[in-house]
Design a protein around this nucleic acid. Sequence first.
DNA 1: TTGTACGCGTTATCAA
DNA 2: TTGATAACGCGTACAA
Lengths: 350, 350
Amino acid sequence: MDSGNSGGARPPRTRRKMQRVTMSDVAKAAAVSPSTVSLFLRKPSAVSERIASRVQRSIDELGYVPNYVAGGLAAAGSKVVSVIVPSLRNAFFSETVAELERLLARGGLQTLVGHTEYSLDQEEALVRAALSWAPAAVVLTGCRHNAATRKLLLRSNTPVVEMWELGGQVIDQAVGFSHEQVGRHIARRFIDQGYESAAFIGARLDEDFRAAQRSEGFLAEMQEAGITARLVENSAPASTSNGVRLFEEVCMNPVRAIACSNDTLALGVLFEAQRRDLSIPTELALAGFGDLDFAAQMVPPLTTVRPAADKIARKVAECILRPQAETDRQNSPFPTEHDTGFTLVPRASG
Amino acid sequence: MDSGNSGGARPPRTRRKMQRVTMSDVAKAAAVSPSTVSLFLRKPSAVSERIASRVQRSIDELGYVPNYVAGGLAAAGSKVVSVIVPSLRNAFFSETVAELERLLARGGLQTLVGHTEYSLDQEEALVRAALSWAPAAVVLTGCRHNAATRKLLLRSNTPVVEMWELGGQVIDQAVGFSHEQVGRHIARRFIDQGYESAAFIGARLDEDFRAAQRSEGFLAEMQEAGITARLVENSAPASTSNGVRLFEEVCMNPVRAIACSNDTLALGVLFEAQRRDLSIPTELALAGFGDLDFAAQMVPPLTTVRPAADKIARKVAECILRPQAETDRQNSPFPTEHDTGFTLVPRASG
DNA sequence: TTGTACGCGTTATCAA
DNA sequence: TTGATAACGCGTACAA
């Protein structure tokens, strides 16, 4: 957006855009050629010590900062990884993004984040934008995407990692676990403890496919055991206050055990139960998902499921940093799944 | 644990390096010149309808995705904004990042995130990396940076916005509020309620300067009122479990009122108090900072301070999207501060 | 070990 | 309205 410097006779001010210090500036200052500087930057050992120190000094003096944009263009492939998650407000994802950012940075890669607010169309837009950076890889959340997104990704030939979910139609690589199994495990625990009525509390199940799968697993396992279990949900975000709200709804028709689509909701249930003088687990068993930091501190501590969040991040980073040998990819162009598993953490709440 | 996929019918990547579809490919297909395509992309109205539709069709058919890297090079200034926060695990910052990402995306800008883990040196590294993208702006958290960071930024002539804090030596623009005032407000409340002993519970105060300022404000106001108040801190991250730990320490020498450096810690205090059968607020008054979602749901609800998080994000985005009149940032190099204020939210806990 | 020359995919300028 | 052409800053053969 260059406001046209209408060519009046007036001498424009000194420098409207202080020229960026470029590699050749450094080269000039160090009395070497640009490519020597470039070489020094990428492989310092390949340059004689004398020149190296001269170049380094010029870099410092001029305050040179390499231009990745130009570098990326020349090298045909930028140093960005685009990470797309449903929401950064969700602790799982902010945690994963943080860890990924850290790990990828070590490999010299920068992280571009996007969040879809659980919209597949928004995801498509973000993928499109991401691909515009010729990214080293694209990391997506889950295996559900719209057709356009999938096509875009496939055509681009960019490495793609789908995380936090397994079981769908994988594009390239997937790292995660089965949420249906999570639901079943929790149900199984309730069943083994002999509860005869239960509910699954879920937020945003229409958009949060993984939470939906947990609910389905839970309900299915319950049904197979012949136990009455119902689903109570709404489309508000998963939050403590929403947990309160959903629990109030459950209370209109009480049950003995409640599984929440995540710990944050469970926290709300706990508070509301306290307010109603409902004793946990005596009168009501409670389970969550996530094992967020507060879960173990709750009174009583919350039974929940711990996903291997850090393992997911590490595995994703690994997929990106150490791509499979090219030959492997050619020979086995089939998508790969990495199961990171999860752990049921039994505590006093149910 | 790699389980091969049950082989969907999907064209595997046979070719390793499928050539990227470029603008001239589109141009060729549409039988126009590349510059026309470029023009069409940036200003569709400047192209005749006939050509426009032809170009659009070729774009769709070829699945063309523009290359921002090349674009950024040519235009000398990329469409990225680098946002650097201390931690994404902290709800304030993940929230702010999320909101910023959303707002900036509307302006066609992409968000590059970095997190420093509260290290100024790490921040410097991130700023250096950020500048490598010739970003449209850099967003930093707080006003405390090391000399190198400051110099880097100043030299680069890049718009800089420092958020979530006011009062330091501003580089360019600052959006936030005074944390010392926050501390004082909370203290004032305790004082007015007549408590005669108090403690400030703080996590990571050596690195989290804003939390430290809150503690200082709190202690200063208390002292000025002639009330005994002590500081209990450690260098672990602010979490519920750390809140429990710090509170246990306080309990070795009980006080009547506790201010926490944030709500997450306060949650831990609440749980531990429940465990010890300490009644809030009767036996112990409690206050937090942040007004996170669960604060209002706690039993009893938490007295806290609500920062105008969304206002901060909006203001930051505005600074970036609507930069000050070009008319010489150079001539009026005076940094600007925007005070977004905060609100003390009195609830039953203290 | 160092330098030269060219190209990466786009934007911007200006001429047609 | 459209199209040549010259940057943009750097990587990378290849040559010296």
